[in-house]
């Protein structure tokens, strides 16, 4: 694979991703690993993997994003996730709107103009509720596999009400619901609802301009998208590879830096 023109790396709190794009901005290679404490070593190793897989020994131009972006010494430039997600979403879907990105440890809402430009954004980086960590923590408590979480929640006929919006207190509330004989499915559905309601509040701080887009690892969970639709009355569009959107956007910024324009989806 030698057609790769630019690279992006997203060093997130849960996962680290690398994306390579070819001319026109088509994604043609991607790697994803759980983030490790020794980020710098992991970055070197992943870049070597990328080089081996692509045959491009330099892995340049490279743009870094994510919370750990400054740790990527090999990067030609560092750019925030807001810009990268916006680029990625516009290239993947070809329109503006409102992008909700739910990451492992933060969530953000970005309002995109018709040309994909960032008009406004809001970030929740203060509280684990409203992030992937909220579900991750609670699914452990319920003994349900993370990958099946959404599916199980959607299968529920009833829904438990969770009054806590705090991740830590939600856990103790779950324990007490279980003790009262409430089933796992209704609790899971209630949990998803609590998460989505936090997201909706954040969407309203920037204002909802349809279409509504969803990205981040949590976008692979079907219950989040369905409940988001129910709460907002809008159809939710999920781009291909929602978890890679930041790294993809970073690669597109890198592509632009060498004078190439990403094409249309």
């Amino acid at each position: 694979m030698t057609g790769i023109r630019a690279w992006g790396i997203d060093v997130g709190s849960s996962t680290t991703k690398i994306v390579g794009v070819e001319a026109g901005g088509t994604m043609c290679l991607h790697l994803l690993e759980d983030s490790e404490p020794r980020a710098e070593e992991q970055i070197v190793r992943m870049l070597q993997r990328a080089a081996a897989a692509s045959g491009d020994q330099r892995v340049r131009p490279l743009v870094a994003t994510g919370y750990g972006r400054k740790l990527v010494q090999q990067a030609d430039r560092v750019v925030t996730e807001i810009t990268c997600h916006a680029r990625g979403a516009y290239r993947a879907l070809g329109h503006g709107g409102t992008l909700v990105d739910v990451g492992g440890q933060d969530s953000k809402v970005i309002k995109l103009g018709p040309q994909g430009e960032v008009l406004d954004f809001a970030m929740n980086d203060k509280c684990a509720a409203g992030t992937g960590r909220f579900l991750e923590n609670t699914c452990r408590r319920l003994g349900v596999d993370l990958e099946r979480l959404g599916e199980v929640a959607l299968a529920a006929r009833d829904e438990a009400t969770l009054s806590s919006t705090c991740t830590v207190f939600a856990e103790s509330e779950i324990v007490s619901l279980l003790a009262h004989g409430v089933g796992v499915e209704p609790i899971l559905k209630g949990l998803h609802r609590a998460l989505v309601q936090r997201l909706v509040a954040m969407i309203h701080t920037v204002g909802l301009t349809p279409p509504l887009m969803l990205s981040g690892g949590v976008a692979r969970n079907p219950a989040v998208a369905r409940l988001l639709e129910a709460e907002t009355g809008e159809t939710v569009v999920v781009p291909p590879h929602p978890q890679l959107l930041g790294a993809f956007g970073a690669a597109l910024v890198a592509l632009e830096s060498v004078g190439e324009r990403p094409g249309k989806p």
Binding site: I82, V118, D125
Partner: peptide, 10 residues
Amino acid sequence: ANRVAAFIET
């Protein structure tokens, strides 16, 4: 720092 950097990029 993250918010400010994102804002300036905007």
